[in-house]
Design a protein around this nucleic acid. Structure first.
Length: 220
DNA sequence: GAGGAGATCGTCT
DNA sequence: GACGATCTCCTCT
């Protein structure tokens, strides 16, 4: 039933080292691909909520018409022009927050959009954040509804622009971080990005094949 | 399971 | 005033 490698106990979660600054100080394509299988962790009160990154998209900054940074620096996207490893959170479609990690050296505005998590800890709390029922014996499709999509992911971990934009993912004081517990995905699939109309042919979306929590299937 | 439409509001021009 | 890195509900197959 449960896959042990995808369900680390809380004790393992606390011991998983946080990703360091130099992990993010690289091009977005490399960072997006290597983020697959890492853990996004939120400390909420005394509890840890966590999910494994199973889907991510690379945005290449000034060189990428689909990126928010393409038209230069604005108050909204200022985080992207700062040091790597910071949270860029924005509000979209009147309903949803999207969570990104800045990467590339300071001044180059690349980033990676975290599109989906496979829940591994604090699952009931994540479901509550999403206002969902989560039965003791959930079906695979019910995992996807928790954090299978950028808006769902952000809501499940309580991520908002007001609370988290600009937060340092690599700081030991941060209540939101990325960690590596040694898990490596068996097979990674590359597709075009979801919902973008500019540079729509670039294959900059990366996902773990056959994972129950990816937002949209690996088409084309 | 797949596809279409509507909701909703911050950001930019 | 237009658009958008989405989600949910509803309908159809």
């Amino acid at each position: 039933m449960r896959k042990p490698s995808e369900m680390p106990a809380i004790a393992d979660l606390r011991n998983a080292p946080r990703l360091a600054r130099d992990f993010f100080d690289r091009d977005p394509v490399t960072v997006a691909r290597e983020l697959l299988g890492k853990l996004l962790v939120r400390r909420e009160r005394r509890q840890l909520l966590a999910g494994r990154v199973v889907e991510a998209e690379a945005y290449l900054g000034a060189a990428d018409p689909a990126a928010h940074a393409f038209n230069g620096r604005t108050p909204r996207n200022a985080v992207l022009f700062g040091p790597p490893g910071h949270a860029y959170v924005y509000f979209i479609y009147g309903n949803h927050y999207c969570t990104n990690v800045s990467c590339m050296p300071q001044g180059e505005a690349g980033c990676v959009l975290l599109r989906a998590l496979d829940p591994v800890a604090g699952i009931a709390a994540m479901a509550t954040n999403r206002d969902l029922e989560f039965p003791p014996e959930p079906r695979p499709a019910q995992f996807r509804r928790i954090a299978g999509g950028p808006g769902r992911l952000s809501e499940a971990l309580g991520i908002t622009r007001e609370r988290d934009n600009g937060k340092d993912f690599t700081s030991s004081r941060s209540d939101l971080w990325l960690a590596d517990d040694g898990y490596r995905p068996a097979r990674v699939v590359t597709t075009t990005r979801i919902g973008v109309t500019k540079a729509a042919n670039r294959r900059l979306r990366f996902l773990i094949a056959d994972n129950r929590s990816v937002s949209v299937g690996a088409r084309e």
